[in-house]
Design a protein around this nucleic acid. Structure first.
Lengths: 252, 252
DNA sequence: CCGCACATTCCATTCACCGGAACGGGGGAC
DNA sequence: GTCCCCCGTTCCGGTGAATGGAATGTGCGG
């Protein structure tokens, strides 16, 4: 049993982790409970974090993630670093199509959205910048999975695959074929596999060493005529971003 | 004498702080030196941070800010929270003008850029998302300063004011007049006060309680004809964003 | 082959951190 | 009005996590 005492660092990180999209602000007690630390400990740690700027206290005394943490996080090469390079191309894509444009990278067995341009008149999508999602359903996910190391692919396919809609492909063998097709075609299409009314077309972005480091996608209404016609657009953007990528985005 | 021992939390934060825009990746020794901790300590702390995802190690063994930290930081209400609300309006502004669009908030006596859309054909600007800047020169800075608490204004004007160009206003009294004009007009113009070839027009964004929480600006070439004609555009965007702002953006 | 710089591991000491408990204060029930 | 409950803050003595010096490992240039 027990809790072998955790390091201070782990506790600090647990306190940051306690904040979620659903609960962006927490009282001290909530914070302590979620982080699994005693109340006095939470109080001391939180005070230090506030002094530094990693947390902020609202007028109501509740804690939130502070701007200072965002400033530091902005230095993540696969976060804003990637975003800065990609933005002009995403802009162009948006301006031509006025559809949702998304940029994502793989983190472990999930993907993380790094940027998203959501036209007010485009299909509403439920994703959020900084949010995670499974790899086997979205267009960007399929691209990232198709070009992931074999070992990652196996792990991802071995895990239970959630069926977001009846059209979500959850059979490992069918997915394997699909991934092969994605590699062959140079783009992925996800039709109604996340929500029935949306369809996405995605293409891979390569780093200086040729490895796939990210993916772009366009998300349109499922009844869009000739969605495949979008593939060249998305691929062009992906190639443009790939060309701009500095050698140091190789990452892990 | 000297160094009263710092808390573990402070050391962890110092290690994050060691990363700067100029040096986004560090070796362990550099990290230890910058954070002011011994090498074994840096090694242990860094290992924990990597395990959690706050840091990442490149193929070269150097440390970088990790994607996980970016995910958490994305929850900062004045960071991505604000950005998500503002983005469609910034989009519109960009699409109409194809000039640089910037979104910033005040943090202490400086401003932090939260978002920036830089057209490839627009004036190159030296700002960076997540970067800081003084309040007394840029358009957004003047807006944020003009609507800051009196005490903040005094502190900002009392500090040495850097003259980025010959046109930068560094006289406190002239600045006071300028800030009054900004409040009166509802927008600010900074003409060549940051770089001689750029001019910016900025407007205030208000939270639910009416307080100014952020500012938008358009940055154009200094020789643009009738720059003041841009003010209504910027103000319209600012008003649009203000209307969308959730009550909880009140912040500190 | 040696030397240097950096990264990693080991270990005994110690001091920063910990949680129980006590204190303060705001707000709702009655 | 009073009581009570919950949340935040402060206090204090015991203890184990963190620490830095030193030793070991590793890669590179001379």
């Amino acid at each position: 049993m027990g809790e072998g005492a955790r390091s201070v660092t782990a506790k600090v990180l647990a306190m940051l982790e306690a904040f979620t999209p659903a609960t962006p602000d927490l009282s001290l007690s909530e914070l302590a409970r979620r982080a699994g630390v005693s109340l006095p400990t939470a109080h001391r740690r939180a005070a230090e974090l506030v002094a530094w700027g990693a947390l902020e206290r609202g007028a109501d005394g509740r804690y939130r993630i502070g701007l200072r943490l965002w400033e530091v996080a902005a230095l993540a090469p696969r976060g804003l670093g990637l975003r800065d390079v990609a933005m002009p191309f995403l802009e162009d894509l948006y301006e031509v199509t006025h559809e949702n444009v998304q940029l994502a990278v793989r983190e472990g067995l999930e993907l993380v959205f790094v940027e998203r341009i959501a036209g007010r008149h485009a299909v509403p999508v439920l994703t959020r910048v900084g949010g995670r999602f499974a790899l086997h359903a979205t267009g960007v996910g399929l691209v990232l999975l198709a070009h992931a190391p074999a070992e990652v692919q196996e792990q991802a396919l071995a895990a239970p695959l959630h069926a977001y809609t009846p059209k979500t492909i959850t059979d490992p063998d069918r997915l394997r074929e699909l991934l092969a097709a994605v590699r062959r075609n140079g783009y992925a299409v996800s039709d109604g596999q996340v929500t029935l009314d949306a369809l996405s077309v995605a293409a891979p972005i390569r780093g200086a060493d040729g490895a796939v480091v990210a993916a772009v996608s366009l998300v349109v209404r499922a009844d869009t005529a000739e969605p495949i016609a979008l593939a060249p657009l998305v691929q062009a953007a992906a190639r443009g971003i790939s060309r701009m990528l500095a050698p140091r985005l190789d990452g892990r």
